[in-house]
Protein backbone atom coordinates (compact mmCIF):
# COMPACT_ATOMS: atom_id res chain seq x y z
CA UNK A 1 0.00 0.00 0.00
CA UNK A 2 2.67 2.48 0.99
CA UNK A 3 4.67 1.48 -2.07
CA UNK A 4 1.77 2.40 -4.32
CA UNK A 5 1.33 5.79 -2.64
CA UNK A 6 5.08 6.38 -2.88
CA UNK A 7 5.12 5.35 -6.54
CA UNK A 8 2.38 7.78 -7.53
CA UNK A 9 3.77 10.62 -5.42
CA UNK A 10 7.24 10.18 -6.84
CA UNK A 11 6.03 9.81 -10.41
CA UNK A 12 3.93 12.99 -10.18
CA UNK A 13 6.88 14.87 -8.70
CA UNK A 14 9.36 13.54 -11.25
CA UNK A 15 7.14 14.24 -14.24
CA UNK A 16 6.42 17.75 -12.94
CA UNK A 17 10.06 18.55 -12.28
CA UNK A 18 11.27 17.14 -15.59
CA UNK A 19 8.53 19.10 -17.33
CA UNK A 20 9.96 22.24 -15.73
CA UNK A 21 13.43 21.24 -17.01
CA UNK A 22 12.20 21.08 -20.57
CA UNK A 23 9.75 23.97 -20.61
CA UNK A 24 11.33 26.60 -18.36
CA UNK A 25 12.81 29.63 -20.09
CA UNK A 26 15.45 30.20 -17.42
CA UNK A 27 18.35 27.73 -17.52
CA UNK A 28 18.92 28.12 -13.78
CA UNK A 29 15.40 26.87 -13.00
CA UNK A 30 16.00 23.96 -15.38
CA UNK A 31 19.14 22.95 -13.54
CA UNK A 32 17.52 23.13 -10.11
CA UNK A 33 14.50 21.15 -11.28
CA UNK A 34 16.78 18.52 -12.84
CA UNK A 35 18.63 18.10 -9.54
CA UNK A 36 15.32 17.66 -7.72
CA UNK A 37 14.02 15.19 -10.28
CA UNK A 38 17.14 13.07 -10.00
CA UNK A 39 16.77 12.87 -6.22
CA UNK A 40 13.18 11.71 -6.65
CA UNK A 41 14.22 9.12 -9.26
CA UNK A 42 16.46 7.61 -6.62
CA UNK A 43 13.25 7.19 -4.62
CA UNK A 44 12.07 4.72 -7.25
CA UNK A 45 15.29 2.78 -6.87
CA UNK A 46 14.67 2.50 -3.15
CA UNK A 47 11.14 1.26 -3.80
CA UNK A 48 12.54 -1.35 -6.21
CA UNK A 49 14.94 -2.67 -3.54
CA UNK A 50 18.02 -1.34 -5.33
CA UNK A 51 19.37 0.63 -2.37
CA UNK A 52 22.94 0.75 -3.61
CA UNK A 53 21.92 2.21 -6.95
CA UNK A 54 19.70 4.75 -5.19
CA UNK A 55 22.61 5.97 -3.10
CA UNK A 56 24.88 6.05 -6.18
CA UNK A 57 22.23 8.04 -8.03
CA UNK A 58 22.08 10.67 -5.29
CA UNK A 59 25.85 10.87 -4.81
CA UNK A 60 26.90 10.82 -8.47
CA UNK A 61 24.09 12.72 -10.15
CA UNK A 62 23.09 15.31 -7.61
CA UNK A 63 26.56 15.48 -6.11
CA UNK A 64 28.99 15.35 -9.01
CA UNK A 65 27.10 16.09 -12.22
CA UNK A 66 24.98 18.86 -10.72
CA UNK A 67 28.13 20.47 -9.31
CA UNK A 68 29.55 20.42 -12.86
CA UNK A 69 26.38 22.09 -14.14
CA UNK A 70 26.53 24.71 -11.43
CA UNK A 71 30.12 25.42 -12.48
CA UNK A 72 28.93 25.74 -16.06
CA UNK A 73 26.19 28.14 -15.01
CA UNK A 74 28.72 30.39 -13.32
CA UNK A 75 31.17 30.10 -16.21
CA UNK A 76 28.80 31.00 -19.02
CA UNK A 77 27.00 33.98 -17.47
CA UNK A 78 23.56 32.58 -18.19
CA UNK A 79 21.86 35.70 -16.87
CA UNK A 80 21.90 36.68 -20.52
CA UNK A 81 19.12 34.47 -21.80
CA UNK A 82 19.49 32.62 -25.04
CA UNK A 83 16.79 34.02 -27.26
CA UNK A 84 14.63 31.14 -28.33
CA UNK A 85 14.01 32.48 -31.79
CA UNK A 86 11.48 30.07 -33.19
CA UNK A 87 9.58 30.90 -36.33
CA UNK A 88 6.06 29.46 -36.76
CA UNK A 89 5.70 28.76 -33.04
CA UNK A 90 2.41 26.90 -33.23
CA UNK A 91 3.49 24.43 -35.90
CA UNK A 92 6.83 23.92 -34.19
CA UNK A 93 5.39 23.12 -30.78
CA UNK A 94 2.63 20.98 -32.23
CA UNK A 95 5.11 18.94 -34.24
CA UNK A 96 7.54 18.49 -31.37
CA UNK A 97 4.84 17.45 -28.89
CA UNK A 98 3.34 15.11 -31.48
CA UNK A 99 6.69 13.46 -32.15
CA UNK A 100 7.31 13.01 -28.42
CA UNK A 101 3.87 11.43 -27.97
CA UNK A 102 4.58 9.23 -30.99
CA UNK A 103 7.82 8.01 -29.42
CA UNK A 104 5.91 7.26 -26.21
CA UNK A 105 3.25 5.27 -28.07
CA UNK A 106 5.72 3.39 -30.26
CA UNK A 107 7.93 2.43 -27.36
CA UNK A 108 5.20 1.46 -24.91
CA UNK A 109 2.96 -0.39 -27.38
CA UNK A 110 4.67 -3.80 -26.96
CA UNK A 111 4.13 -3.70 -23.19
CA UNK A 112 0.39 -3.36 -23.44
CA UNK A 113 0.06 -5.99 -26.12
CA UNK A 114 2.07 -8.56 -24.18
CA UNK A 115 -0.08 -8.28 -21.02
CA UNK A 116 2.83 -8.56 -18.64
CA UNK A 117 1.77 -8.90 -15.03
CA UNK A 118 3.91 -7.98 -12.09
CA UNK A 119 5.34 -10.75 -10.02
CA UNK A 120 7.87 -9.47 -7.56
CA UNK A 121 9.68 -12.35 -5.97
CA UNK A 122 11.98 -11.14 -3.25
CA UNK A 123 15.68 -11.78 -3.48
CA UNK A 124 16.49 -14.18 -0.72
CA UNK A 125 19.59 -14.44 1.39
CA UNK A 126 22.16 -11.78 0.60
CA UNK A 127 21.37 -8.08 0.49
CA UNK A 128 21.42 -5.77 -2.47
CA UNK A 129 24.81 -4.19 -1.86
CA UNK A 130 26.44 -7.57 -1.31
CA UNK A 131 24.96 -9.02 -4.50
CA UNK A 132 26.10 -6.05 -6.56
CA UNK A 133 29.59 -6.34 -5.12
CA UNK A 134 29.76 -10.05 -5.87
CA UNK A 135 28.56 -9.60 -9.44
CA UNK A 136 30.62 -6.49 -10.12
CA UNK A 137 33.91 -8.02 -9.06
CA UNK A 138 33.44 -11.42 -10.68
CA UNK A 139 31.20 -11.54 -13.72
CA UNK A 140 31.36 -7.87 -14.69
CA UNK A 141 34.95 -7.14 -13.71
CA UNK A 142 35.97 -6.24 -17.27
CA UNK A 143 33.09 -3.80 -17.62
CA UNK A 144 34.01 -2.25 -14.28
CA UNK A 145 37.65 -1.76 -15.27
CA UNK A 146 36.70 -0.46 -18.71
CA UNK A 147 34.44 2.08 -16.98
CA UNK A 148 37.43 3.19 -14.91
CA UNK A 149 39.59 3.59 -18.04
CA UNK A 150 36.77 5.47 -19.76
CA UNK A 151 36.51 7.91 -16.86
CA UNK A 152 40.29 8.46 -16.97
CA UNK A 153 40.15 9.13 -20.72
CA UNK A 154 37.23 11.51 -20.22
CA UNK A 155 39.14 13.37 -17.51
CA UNK A 156 42.23 13.76 -19.71
CA UNK A 157 40.07 14.85 -22.65
CA UNK A 158 38.36 17.46 -20.50
CA UNK A 159 41.66 18.86 -19.28
CA UNK A 160 43.16 18.96 -22.79
CA UNK A 161 40.08 20.59 -24.31
CA UNK A 162 39.70 23.35 -21.74
CA UNK A 163 43.26 23.99 -20.59
CA UNK A 164 44.70 26.25 -23.26
CA UNK A 165 47.57 27.33 -21.05
CA UNK A 166 49.46 24.05 -21.65
CA UNK A 167 50.74 25.00 -25.11
CA UNK A 168 51.80 28.45 -23.99
CA UNK A 169 53.80 27.01 -21.11
CA UNK A 170 55.60 24.48 -23.30
CA UNK A 171 56.40 27.25 -25.79
CA UNK A 172 57.87 29.30 -22.97
CA UNK A 173 60.03 26.36 -21.95
CA UNK A 174 61.36 25.94 -25.49
CA UNK A 175 62.11 29.65 -25.73
CA UNK A 176 63.95 29.47 -22.42
CA UNK A 177 65.99 26.51 -23.65
CA UNK A 178 66.90 28.33 -26.84
CA UNK A 179 67.98 31.38 -24.87
CA UNK A 180 70.30 29.25 -22.79
Amino acid sequence: MYEIIAFYTFSALVIGLFGIVVLSKNALYSMTALAGGMVFISGFFFILDAEFLGVVQIVVYTGAIMALYAFGMMFFDTTRDVKEDIRCKKIFYTLSILSAVLVLIVLSAPIFSANIEAIYPTLEGVGNVQTIGLLLFTKYLVAFELAAIMLLVAMIAGIVLVGKKLDAQSDDLEVAKELK
Binding site: I15, F18, G19, V21, V22, A27, S30, Y69, G72, M73, F76, T78, V82, K83, E84, D85, I86, F92, Y93, S96, I97, S99, A100, V101, V103, L104
Partner: peptide, 15 residues
Protein backbone atom coordinates in the same frame (compact mmCIF):
# COMPACT_ATOMS: atom_id res chain seq x y z
CA UNK B 1 9.59 11.35 -24.26
CA UNK B 2 9.91 14.47 -22.10
CA UNK B 3 13.67 14.35 -22.61
CA UNK B 4 13.21 13.84 -26.34
CA UNK B 5 10.88 16.85 -26.43
CA UNK B 6 13.57 18.91 -24.72
CA UNK B 7 16.27 17.78 -27.15
CA UNK B 8 14.31 18.73 -30.23
CA UNK B 9 12.55 21.88 -29.03
CA UNK B 10 15.16 23.86 -27.09
CA UNK B 11 17.84 26.16 -28.46
CA UNK B 12 20.09 26.48 -25.41
CA UNK B 13 22.74 23.74 -25.76
CA UNK B 14 23.02 23.61 -21.98
CA UNK B 15 19.37 22.69 -21.66
Amino acid sequence: SIGFLGVISRKNIFV
